[in-house]
Design a protein around this nucleic acid. Structure first.
Length: 553
RNA sequence: UGUCUAAUGGUGUAAUGGUAGCACAUCUGAUUUUGGUUCAGCCAGUCGAGGUUCGAGUCCUCGUUAGACAACCA
């Protein structure tokens, strides 16, 4: 690659840190998902950042599950997260869990108490919230703030032994109730959770650390140098640094950097809303092809390459914006274009009878799988007197701008003859039941008259050996460009036509053997991927993305 | 009426004090055995006002606008 894109702002920081010998010039990152949902394309952006920084600067990226809230977390998610990261093409150095550090964090909390930097508060959540103040008003101190150290120690131990019920007490850092940064107003370090066992430690612990008391410490324990996250954590950074400064015993420090999270038009990128869509059955599951989850995109037919291309094009900055979903689709087409066979599928079939082609006769034609990529080879298709074509490819009394079949007009049947339309049969209601045509001899590829000019080439499949398929046409889940910021109920914005199922689609015989995950271009229609729901004899195709919009239709 | 973060074509991003460039989208024309692709072209931008400088998108000041933050979530 001759042209090298410029470094993004975080890569520049890492580059400078190495030059300046910060943390001995070491680079260590981590991807820290909470195992409480499936990864989505926003996570993919973070994954690419964390892993690519490590790869590019000769460091390591570890996987760390931020599992400090047993009420929300589950091993189901751990497994899917690992699968999705691997699918994107990355391999972590080590797998860590924040829960691995529960002992260390507990000891650290005790140290904070002993140093007079933490206290047990037994007010209700509401009282604590009230005393927190507002951004423009300082908070007020808890009446328990100056409890003797020995009492704090004893109560904290009880918080974790099960003697104190959930919600009755918390451990708070004693910092500054008037700080302009709300996160410094005596943040909660530990809370009690007894209603849900932890997915790894079971019921061993009753008190669990909060994010702010766990994340930075975990980074420190592991030796992370660059702790990269999204912009909403900017306000947490001073606290991240503060906690570490209280106990760090060397010059080494992890540093947090933040980039803009990914928003895409016509979709939501919040785990909470996605979970809601799944639970309410609005979509069929986390891997529903309409979901922006990694597994959803995979099932939809997106490739890791397409996702990487997309991520590299959108870049990393500190500006919050919304990416046009059209860019994602562009990257997908771009990747699939040369890598998928192009086949013929007829969505709304109507019979085409070639009246001057002998009844009972067939011929095998050789057709390229992808004219843009000869490596994909060729295949055989069967031509005969009776074919299926798209109903929309015939129009009686068509205007001049219609390039396809109408009485007297000629089109090419893709990979076969040029035919002239001679008319159509209609039923008693005037509906077209079959189209008639005559083929023009010597117009097949390579034959004498093959260069005869026609306005259009249309798709067809042979009736006798066509395979039948179900096609699932997916569209955007929301009708609004930015459903994420809609103030009302987001159900209002759901697109009722986000899934359209088409049965009775006629496809080339060769597709009868297609396997889940196989990808094709249905010529003139779009890119399709075989769905795992397919059964023997009933192939289901998901539309990954349509071809760019036609001028006509 | 707090703190923090940011502001470059419609959208996303680059230019690291020295020619404002790229991509997507839109539109136009050519090519095409996909009304796809490809190729060529058009349109279109530094939030505002001062200042520093030979020179400012970039540095400084003051505005304006937008977003984040007041979970026992992460």
């Amino acid at each position: 690659m001759a042209e090298e894109r410029s470094l993004n702002f975080i890569e520049q920081i890492v580059d400078n840190d190495i030059k300046n010998g910060v943390n001995s010039g070491r680079v260590q990152t981590r991807f820290p998902p909470e195992p409480n949902g499936y990864l989505h394309i926003g996570h993919a952006k973070a994954i690419c950042m964390d892993f690519d920084i490590a790869r590019r600067f000769g460091g390591v990226c570890n996987l760390r599950f931020d599992d400090t809230n047993p009420a929300k977390e589950d091993t189901e998610y751990v497994d899917s997260i690992m699968e999705d990261i691997k699918w994107l093409g990355y391999q972590w150095g080590n797998v860590y869990y924040a829960s691995d550090y529960f002992d260390q964090l507990y000891d650290l909390a005790i140290r904070f108490i002993k140093e007079g930097k933490a206290y047990v508060d037994e007010q209700t959540a509401e009282q604590i919230a009230e005393q927190k103040g507002t951004p423009t008003q300082p908070g007020i101190e808890s009446p328990y703030r100056n409890r003797p150290i020995e009492e704090n120690l004893a109560l904290f131990e009880k918080m974790n032994s099960g003697e104190i019920p959930e919600g009755a007490m918390v451990l708070r850092a004693k910092i500054d109730m008037a700080n302009s940064n709300m996160h410094f107003r005596d943040p909660i370090m530990y809370r009690i959770i007894t209603s849900h066992p932890h997915h790894r430690t079971g019921t061993k612990w009753k008190a669990y650390p909060m994010y702010d008391f766990a994340h930075g410490q975990s980074d420190y324990f592991e030796g992370v140098t660059h702790s990269i996250c999204t912009l909403e954590f900017v306000v947490h950074r001073p606290l991240y640094d503060w906690f570490i400064d209280q106990f760090a015993d060397s010059d080494y420090r992890p540093h947090q950097y933040e980039f803009n999270r990914l928003n895409i038009t016509y979709t939501v990128m919040s785990k909470r809303k996605m979970l809601q869509l799944v639970k309410e059955g609005v979509v069929a599951g986390w891997d529903d092809p309409r979901m922006p989850t990694i597994c959803g995109l995979r099932r939809r037919g997106y490739t890791p390459q397409a996702i990487h291309d997309f991520i590299s094009r959108i870049g990393y900055t500190k500006v919050e914006g919304v990416i046009d979903v059209g860019l994602l689709e562009h990257c997908c087409r771009e990747n699939l274009k040369a890598n998928t066979p192009r086949v013929m599928a007829i969505m709304k079939p109507i019979k085409l009878i070639v009246d001057n082609y002998p009844e009972g006769q067939t011929e095998q034609l050789i057709i390229e799988n992808n004219p843009d990529n000869p490596e994909l080879g060729t295949r055989e298709i069967t031509f005969s007197r009776e074919l299926y074509i798209e109903r929309d490819d015939y129009m009686p009394d068509a205007p001049k701008s219609f390039f396809r079949l109408t009485e007297g007009r000629e089109v090419r049947l893709k990979g076969a003859y040029i035919v002239r339309c001679t008319g159509a049969d209609t039923d008693q209601y005037g509906n077209v039941t079959a189209v008639h045509c005559e083929f023009i001899p010597n117009t097949k590829t390579g034959e004498a008259d093959c260069n005869r000019k026609v306005k259009s080439t249309i798709n067809w499949v042979n009736i006798a050996n066509a395979a039948e398929a179900q096609v699932r046409l997916y569209d955007r889940l929301f009708t609004d460009e930015n459903p994420g910021i809609y103030e009302g109920d987001f159900h209002d914005l759901l697109n009722p036509e986000s899934l359209q199922i088409v049965n009775g689609v006629k496809v080339e015989a060769c597709l009868a053997n297609a396997k889940p995950g196989d990808k094709f271009q249905f010529q003139k229609i779009g890119y399709f991927c075989v769905d795992p729901d397919s059964e023997n004899g009933k192939t289901i195709f998901n539309r990954t993305v349509s071809l760019k919009d036609n001028n006509y239709k």
